[in-house]
Amino acid sequence: MNVTVLFFGMLAEVTQTSVLELNTNSMHLTDFQNEVLNLFPDLKKMSFKIAVNEKIVEEDVPLTAFSKIAFLPPFAGG
């Protein structure tokens, strides 16, 4: 299935895009997250939270073809 992935801030610099359509076999967030980290190993060094369908999630939620997954890092600047 295809899911939409959004990258914010410095994460988008690592992935060189802020939006990505990914074809995945992962049915759950943790598997999907590992897939993304393998695709962009430099993300492993960075801090972020993940939102699924615009909601920050801590647990391993199931994904569907309509899932929109966002990787959100903390910003410091002011």
Binding site: M10, K45, M46, S47, P73, P74, F75, A76, G77, G78
Partner: peptide, 9 residues
């Protein structure tokens, strides 16, 4: 917790 790295402005 504070992140590993993040630059300021």
């Amino acid at each position: 917790e504070p992140p590993k790295q993040a630059p300021n402005c």
